[in-house]
Amino acid sequence: MYLYALIFPIISIIAIIWFITRYFKGKNSLITVVLWSIFWIIVSLFAIFPNVSSAFARLFGITRGLDFVIILVFVVLFYTVLKLYFIVDKMQNEINTLVKELALKNEISLDDEEE
């Protein structure tokens, strides 16, 4: 048994517990828990039973198991980056609104300085 077959399942369990804890604290949605749990279960399966990746690969018409794993990682990374982009974009808009409103409510007068 290779070391990665032990390490990846441990990381997966920690990750899944982390997502479930965040769900109970109301920090992420149930769908996030489910999607990330599926991802980490697949990662663990690939680590413990490397041949499983070949079975998945054939399912998607890809010949090598490793190719499937690499493509899967790219898809997950792309999704994560896209999601982060939308979160940052939303936050930028909220900051803009906040900064603008604060400025509009506080016209600077020379009296402020004298006080």
Partner: peptide
């Protein structure tokens, strides 16, 4: 002159909108 000030730099678009 009337002065308004954005707390942090947000770009010419936001400043003009303000």
């Amino acid at each position: 002159i009337h002065i308004f000030s954005l707390l942090i730099n947000r770009g010419v678009g936001i400043a003009t909108q303000t």
